[in-house]
Design a protein around this nucleic acid. Sequence first.
DNA 1: CGGGCCAGCGTTACCGCTAACAAATCGCAC
DNA 2: GTGCGATTTGTTAGCGGTAACGCTGGCCCG
Lengths: 348, 348
Amino acid sequence: MIKPSRRSRGSITVQDVAREAGVSAMTVSRVVNGGTNVREATREAVLAAIAKLNYSPNSAARSLAAGEATQIGLLYSNPSAAYLSQFLIGALAAARRAGCHLVLEACEGERPEEQAEATRGFVQTHVQGVILPPPLSEVGAVRDELDAAGIPWVSVAMGLPPEGSLNVRIDDFAAAAAMTSHLIDMGHRRIGFIRGNPNQTSSAERYRGFCAAIEEAGLDLAAMPVEQGYFTFRSGIVACEALLDLPERPTAIFASNDDMAAAAVGVAHRRGLHVPQDLSVVGFDDTSLATTMWPELTTVRQPIAAMAEAALSMLLDELRPRGQNAQAEQVLAHQLIVRESCAPPPRR
Amino acid sequence: MIKPSRRSRGSITVQDVAREAGVSAMTVSRVVNGGTNVREATREAVLAAIAKLNYSPNSAARSLAAGEATQIGLLYSNPSAAYLSQFLIGALAAARRAGCHLVLEACEGERPEEQAEATRGFVQTHVQGVILPPPLSEVGAVRDELDAAGIPWVSVAMGLPPEGSLNVRIDDFAAAAAMTSHLIDMGHRRIGFIRGNPNQTSSAERYRGFCAAIEEAGLDLAAMPVEQGYFTFRSGIVACEALLDLPERPTAIFASNDDMAAAAVGVAHRRGLHVPQDLSVVGFDDTSLATTMWPELTTVRQPIAAMAEAALSMLLDELRPRGQNAQAEQVLAHQLIVRESCAPPPRR
DNA sequence: CGGGCCAGCGTTACCGCTAACAAATCGCAC
DNA sequence: GTGCGATTTGTTAGCGGTAACGCTGGCCCG
């Protein structure tokens, strides 16, 4: 007497689908993945059976059988929370599709030794690849450690990634230039710029974009006041104070990220300047801060979730033994988001 | 002739550990999980072998063999990004430990029909349980849909969870009372309160805590101006304007979350009031906003990541067939975070 | 001193899926 | 028709781990 398998989970498996469609389990598997070398009629029968039974493949079994990568590391330091949450949403979506797990690790310290230490945590836990969102994508200690362990990595949102490395980014240069042109088109002729942290290449790229747009418009770059910031709210306060202390005040401020832009708006308000009537302020990144302030911020949106997804796919392609990977670099489209924080300069 | 298995992945398996320790694979498995009925000497030998080989179990194989839950849903609407990122960090850590995948689904709309629709997405994709962070934990349409499908859920951070439901939370009442007492201890006698969205029970609990502390201090509750807010930055502006328009202005404002507190600080600044010298402002949640503003916000910290972890563990316990689950409710500890946004009231 | 019980460990048989190989089928030129 | 390569489909053998059950030997009790 055959007793029903005591361990059956009652869920729909390939076998069930195969029986329903009158084919073998292997054929079902082929249809579900890629589906090479399956006759059209057969595929349709299988798809119909899948739909009928509401089958969804068991990802644990799949990655076990296929021997795929199952643990991908994500090393984060302290980007803005808004950035991180978007990033995680994208990465999680891609991870689930691929059936792999995301292993998070915080990298708190600033010192190379601490960073290397956090990285070694990954090596211990057998992650097969690592995603490096900013600003860690720029940290040599981390990359060296991963290279030494032979673990592939993808950098995300670097301004100027090293040749041949896996990376996903936007065109910081073009985005900053577009934003600058937007201000110029509005009539601003004296635009203050707050630079980002010099240890990140995107800072330089954004500044280059700013300069290029100024010069292209035939304006005098030397007349544009520039302050150094470090991407933090606090540094934005200092930089903005300096800009507004100038005898000839800028009519607009372009901060290299939203946090610093928010700081600039705060400083302006405390000085009794109205934004945007007296001073226009624009940022970069379109984090949630941009809409939880008043006035809401004109800024550049990065497709953060899409970038995370792209990074993970790229990494998995790299890890897949079969064939060579198509591309090692992806530049996604950015978008200029116009809100209420900028307006034509005040008439004088 | 035995050729080495062509599909071997070269990684360390239970078999390797078993051989090294001179026991069977099953014993290794027992040691790794729980480890009931294993002699101490044997356990040590196995642990030594594990350490020596640097073995780490394959979570795909584990969940396949054990037939464990592999997909846990996380339905989020739009809590603050800071909240979400912390929440995801905690949930991911727990998910990895348990070897299950997190399935995110955004629930955009406000209308019950849209919310139910988003929930049905989960039912389709065979998630075995769902975590409901605020404010979705309070949405009847979502919970009904899950109940109808027989999918267990855990609510997180509800103020007053329904009897018998799985939930993880902090004591909103006590936390709000503590914050209020802190203000009273500083010398404030006229404290304005901005309520949270009435569709969330935590709003009511926080308000109850505020009232209790006021009365316990022997102050006149009727003298405290209260405004309705909705947890949004925008609603905080309106509420704070109303409070500051009062003939007898409060010396402190207790906003039911950080976004509204940030709004209050902004309004005060635009009116030329200095925070905290002229007006103290405190918030609730300790999201990242609390430190990306100036002055930094005194607020209540929720252990968000820990709450997410607890929620996931609770859900998995519920799903595990063996035995009954210990607890259906967990109240984690909150913490009063004192920063720069409050000070004794101005002398008059 | 025999037998029942249980802690401790091994054996077997899978979980659900897919790589690799084998077999069947097809198309087509001669 | 026949032969042969290309395409489509089926078969087998695991991937790494664990549930269920079986076996062993020591302990206790009658």
